[in-house]
């Protein structure tokens, strides 16, 4: 082993990483370009919208409901240290809308949808269904990827909006039943301190997270290795990558939206 060996290993890792980033970027741009070129597949889009949006509602709703409740308890306990218990409604609302609604919604959708897309497309690949699409004059990127990218980008902000409302409702329920808040005062404080941009920034984040979820599911599914193990690995990698990218994108978007 020479002295340069560690650098060679590091270099290979860096080059491999950059190549992977490049491949994903090209895949994403190709998928987006198919959204603007006919033929279009509205039925595939509506099916994806239903699968990604409607069927994710229960898991996103339950997650944000419990998170909103727990957040109210935590803020109350923390605020009590400096007699600031009254900030519970506004902090719950701002926290849910800006941060927890989009991030938790995105992560739950990543777990549910990225895995499902990667497994479905990966299985299609290993059973030659993707090749069959090509031989039937149907471009797989247009038929499988583009509708899912669009559906997730549109559906997740809606899920985030609903999740925000349910999370705030969770905080409200805990506030009035466990923390002795007056219901009218709680709602008034929530309304007064919550600004439009708090909600809008969360919805933009939701759109970005939805795109990431569908992109990871489609990319790793389309590049799945053969066999059950290959599909399993693609599914796992899609969920892990989507989750990490969501958290990284959340930081970047927060910097962009709020650092000024």
């Amino acid at each position: 082993m020479t002295l340069t060996y560690p650098f060679a290993v590091l270099g290979r890792q860096v080059l491999g990483f950059l190549a992977a980033v490049g491949r994903i970027a090209i895949f994403a741009l190709t998928g987006i370009s198919h959204l603007f070129r006919p033929p279009f597949y509205p039925k595939e889009f509506l099916t994806a919208l239903l699968q990604i949006g409607y069927f994710s509602l229960p898991v996103v709703g339950l997650t944000t409901l419990f998170t909103g409740g727990a957040l109210a308890l935590q803020i109350y306990a923390g605020g009590a240290r400096f007699s600031a218990e009254s900030v519970v409604p506004s902090i719950v609302a701002i926290g849910m809308a800006r941060e927890l609604g989009p991030v938790l919604g995105g992560l739950m959708v990543a777990a549910r949808v990225a895995s499902s897309i990667a497994a479905e497309i990966g299985t299609m690949k290993v059973t030659e269904q993707i090749d069959a699409l090509t031989t039937l004059s149907t471009e797989p990127m247009k038929y499988l990827v583009a509708p899912r990218l669009l559906a997730a980008t549109l559906a997740v902000p809606v899920l985030v909006g609903i999740g925000d409302s349910i999370g705030i409702m969770g905080g409200y329920l805990v506030g009035i039943t466990r923390l002795d808040f007056n219901p009218a005062t709680y709602l008034k404080n929530t309304r007064e301190f919550l600004e439009f941009w708090d909600v809008a920034s969360g919805l933009w984040k939701g759109a970005a997270f939805g795109f990431i979820v569908a992109l990871c599911g489609c990319y790793f599914g389309m590049n799945s290795a053969r066999g059950a193990q290959g599909v399993g690995r693609a599914t796992k990698t899609a969920v892990v990558t989507a989750s990490v990218l969501i958290l990284a994108a959340n930081y970047v978007l927060t910097e962009v939206f709020f650092s000024a």
Binding site: M124, T127, E128, Q129, D131, A132, T135, L136, S137
Partner: peptide, 14 residues
């Protein structure tokens, strides 16, 4: 491909 048909080994049905 527009005037082509193929039978795959495993069927490759959707």
């Amino acid at each position: 491909l527009a005037r082509f048909g193929m039978l795959f080994q495993g069927g490759a049905l959707f």
